[in-house]
Amino acid sequence: MSGTAWYRRQRHQHRCPDSVGGVPIRRLRASAARLPAALFPAVLVRAVLTLVLLAASACGGGDLPTAGPDRQVDHPADTASGEGRPTVGTSTPEVPTPETPTAPETPTAPVTPAATADPATAKDSNQTTATPEDQTAVTPAPRLRYAFPVTGRPISYHPTHSAYPATDIFADCGAPAVAVTDGVVLEVSRVDRYRPGGPAGPFNGGKLVSLLGDDGVRYYGSHLDTVDAGIDPGIRVRAGQRLGTVGRTGNANNVCHLHFGLSPPCTGRDDWWLRRGVIWPARYLDAWRTGTHRSPAGEVTEWRDRHGCPTAP
């Protein structure tokens, strides 16, 4: 009976033989693996091994490795050269099992890096930074705003004044008089004490307000018709804030105008010969009227450095 017929008979009867020709299948497999190829013709070796493999396949293949897409078995009879054939007295080399391929990683959305400082200014995380105790930050003084002392129209003034440096700003009675810059109110007079033939000087301004600006300059406005409620000594005001209204009190000669003077604060009160004005205001009024924030502080400081604070007119 040929090997093929025998195999078909076994498959038909659905039983698995334990031996072939009285020799156990396992022993045949072990013996076949140890047989040197030089003792038998290649055709005989192929026939014997084919019979063994067919018998083993009928029982599910036993423990022989099977060739597949992921696994290639090199049998001694399958190679034309001596490579891959086991030698006498040595064990059959193990066929390496390839690693099971893993599914590719699912790409994740790119992580947006956190914003970093400019490389030119970035600091190492271990670098010690200065603390307020060993580094003093110098904050520049804010630039002051300046406002023209009177709002509304018509307005006019002359660059000169009689007897001493000051400016008379002519406007309608009732026109708003405002703070020239941020500062604190020094003096307020809501009563017109001027009397013709009376003392010359102390009450000439009639109703008035003087302001110490944050720039160190005293700003003086007089001949007011009214002083607004809440404008009192010690009160802080801001540039452009209304202080009162233009009038003709004091020795205004019945002409509506605002007498405007610039001076150092000195005592801050009762020094009428200083508060009425010590430098010419015209060029500063020109700047403020056009929106230019020009400070008279430098010129006032120079005047005081030269003259001090005279104690009498």
Score class of each variant (00 low, 15 high):
residue 8 R to W: 00
residue 11 R to H: 05
residue 12 H to Y: 11
residue 15 R to S: 11
residue 18 D to Y: 09
residue 19 S to L: 00
residue 23 V to R: 13
residue 23 V to D: 01
residue 25 I to L: 15
residue 25 I to C: 10
residue 28 L to K: 09
residue 34 R to P: 00
residue 34 R to W: 05
residue 37 A to D: 13
residue 37 A to I: 10
residue 38 A to G: 00
residue 39 L to I: 13
residue 42 A to P: 01
residue 45 V to P: 03
residue 45 V to S: 08
residue 46 R to L: 11
residue 47 A to R: 14
residue 47 A to G: 11
residue 51 L to Y: 04
residue 52 V to P: 05
residue 52 V to C: 12
residue 58 A to D: 13
residue 62 G to C: 08
residue 63 D to L: 13
residue 65 P to E: 08
residue 73 V to T: 10
residue 74 D to G: 13
residue 76 P to Y: 11
residue 77 A to G: 13
residue 80 A to H: 13
residue 90 T to A: 14
residue 93 P to S: 13
residue 93 P to M: 08
residue 97 T to L: 14
residue 102 T to F: 10
residue 105 E to F: 08
residue 112 T to F: 04
residue 113 P to L: 02
residue 115 A to D: 14
residue 118 D to Y: 04
residue 119 P to T: 10
residue 120 A to Q: 09
residue 122 A to F: 02
residue 125 S to K: 06
residue 126 N to V: 11
residue 127 Q to F: 08
residue 134 D to E: 12
residue 135 Q to C: 11
residue 136 T to N: 14
residue 136 T to G: 12
residue 137 A to I: 15
residue 140 P to G: 04
residue 141 A to G: 08
residue 144 L to K: 07
residue 145 R to F: 04
residue 145 R to L: 10
residue 148 F to A: 05
residue 150 V to F: 01
residue 153 R to Q: 12
residue 153 R to F: 01
residue 158 H to D: 12
residue 158 H to R: 10
residue 159 P to C: 09
residue 167 T to C: 03
residue 168 D to T: 05
residue 170 F to L: 06
residue 172 D to C: 01
residue 173 C to Q: 04
residue 173 C to D: 02
residue 177 A to Q: 02
residue 178 V to Q: 03
residue 179 A to P: 07
residue 180 V to P: 04
residue 181 T to P: 03
residue 183 G to I: 00
residue 183 G to Y: 03
residue 192 D to V: 01
residue 193 R to E: 05
residue 193 R to L: 15
residue 199 P to W: 04
residue 200 A to L: 14
residue 201 G to P: 06
residue 203 F to A: 14
residue 203 F to Y: 15
residue 204 N to H: 09
residue 204 N to D: 15
residue 206 G to C: 02
residue 207 K to S: 01
residue 209 V to Q: 04
residue 212 L to C: 00
residue 214 D to W: 07
residue 215 D to Q: 07
residue 215 D to I: 02
residue 220 Y to A: 12
residue 221 G to S: 09
residue 230 G to N: 07
residue 231 I to H: 05
residue 231 I to S: 03
residue 235 I to T: 13
residue 237 V to K: 12
residue 237 V to W: 10
residue 242 R to E: 12
residue 245 T to I: 06
residue 247 G to A: 10
residue 248 R to D: 13
residue 248 R to Q: 14
residue 249 T to M: 06
residue 250 G to Q: 08
residue 252 A to T: 06
residue 252 A to W: 07
residue 253 N to P: 00
residue 256 C to W: 00
residue 260 F to D: 02
residue 261 G to Y: 04
residue 265 P to C: 05
residue 267 T to Y: 04
residue 267 T to S: 15
residue 269 R to T: 14
residue 269 R to V: 14
residue 271 D to V: 06
residue 271 D to C: 03
residue 272 W to A: 02
residue 274 L to H: 05
residue 282 A to I: 02
residue 290 T to R: 15
residue 293 H to A: 11
residue 293 H to R: 07
residue 293 H to C: 01
residue 301 T to I: 00
residue 302 E to F: 03
residue 305 D to P: 00
residue 305 D to F: 06
residue 306 R to K: 13
residue 307 H to M: 02
residue 308 G to V: 03
residue 310 P to Q: 01
residue 310 P to T: 03
residue 312 A to N: 08
